[in-house]
């Protein structure tokens, strides 16, 4: 089963990987379901795949799940959107102007090293339990990947290419469209992939703390109600969303910037 030679992967090889993965998931679910044939089942403490599936179907059919997700999506969109705009702008300036980066690097490092989630209670107390408080938490958590990656992207722009474009009589516009944007964008997208995960943490933190609706609130409430099947269904929904977002961005990276696929 060792693959020292690592020959180029044929189609069947890739297929094999997917099949093995599906098999493992199937085994896991079957084992989970089967274990309660032996172990006494206590639905206040654990759940089973079939019950979770029923709960999920019910939650979707009644529209509760969709409604909770839609409610949580609003602060996410605001916070994440602001993080993109502010983070990319700041990162580009820091990458382009050496002095700015000298001045801001230490502060950013300090902020990034601090567990900023710790400010969440303060933010909630200050801005209330509405959309704005959550959006701010999400913004604070997801802005740093954009700053650092945009900065790294600008630093990585090949000066030679800039000079070539200039020598050939290219305009500023050519410079931006043909050199700078193509080389910075992959970094920003890579940053977005990290930021998505942190943004999701932001939603959950905000809603666990103080909310009356939303997916994080739903999970916490079902937990309090010992409704484990419904809680697992919501957890599963979050997992699916997280995987779709992260892997979706990864797929987009590979499709849009194939020259970076090796990384």
């Amino acid at each position: 089963m060792l693959d020292e030679a690592a020959p180029r992967q044929s189609f069947t090889d890739k297929h094999r990987k997917v099949l093995l993965g599906l098999l493992a998931v199937a085994i896991f679910l079957a084992a989970w379901q089967a274990v309660f044939l032996v172990v006494p089942f206590n639905k206040l403490f654990v759940s089973k795949p079939d019950l979770i599936w029923d709960a999920l179907v019910k939650l979707i059919a009644s529209g509760d799940l969709i409604r909770d997700l839609a409610i949580s999506a609003v602060p996410f969109v605001y916070g994440f959107g602001a993080a993109v705009v502010v983070g990319v702008a700041l990162g580009i300036v820091m990458g382009w102007r050496e002095r700015v980066s000298y001045a801001l690097d230490p502060i950013m490092t300090i902020f990034y090293a601090s567990p900023l989630v710790a400010l969440a209670p303060l933010v909630i107390v200050f801005f209330g339990v509405g959309v704005s408080g959550k959006a701010i938490i999400i913004f604070v958590l997801s802005v740093f990947p954009f700053i650092f990656n945009a900065q790294a992207g600008v630093r990585a722009v090949d000066r030679l290419l800039i000079n070539v474009v200039r020598s050939m009589g290219g305009t500023e516009r050519d410079l931006y469209l043909k050199v700078i944007v193509p080389s910075v964008l992959p970094y920003i997208v890579a940053g977005a992939r990290i930021a998505v995960g942190r943004g999701l943490i932001g939603i959950l933190v905000g809603e666990f703390f103080a909310a009356s609706e939303g997916i994080g609130y739903a999970i916490a409430r079902f937990g309090d109600l010992f409704a484990l099947d419904r809680m697992f269904a919501c957890i599963f929904a979050i997992m699916v969303i997280a995987v779709v977002l992260t892997e979706g961005i990864r797929w987009a990276e590979r499709a849009a910037f194939p020259w970076r696929a090796g990384q």
């Binding site: 089963m1 060792l2 693959d3 094999r16 990987k17 997917v18 093995l20 993965g21 599906l22 098999l23 493992a24 998931v25 896991f28 403490f45 995960g197 999701l200 943490i201 959950l204 933190v205 666990f208 994080g216 999970i219 916490a220 079902f222 937990g223 309090d224 010992f226 484990l228 809680m231 697992f232 919501c234 957890i235 979050i238 997992m239 997280a242 995987v243 977002l245 992260t246 892997e247």
Partner: peptide, 29 residues
């Protein structure tokens, strides 16, 4: 081991992408 990798990959991808905070209420129980 490539087999083991293929089998664990779905779990690792899913759990790595998911913020572990969602498990908090469950873990508290």
């Amino acid at each position: 081991s490539r087999t083991l990798n293929a089998m664990l990959d779905p779990f690792i991808t899913a759990f790595n992408a998911t913020p572990r905070l969602v498990f908090l209420p469950l873990l508290m129980l």
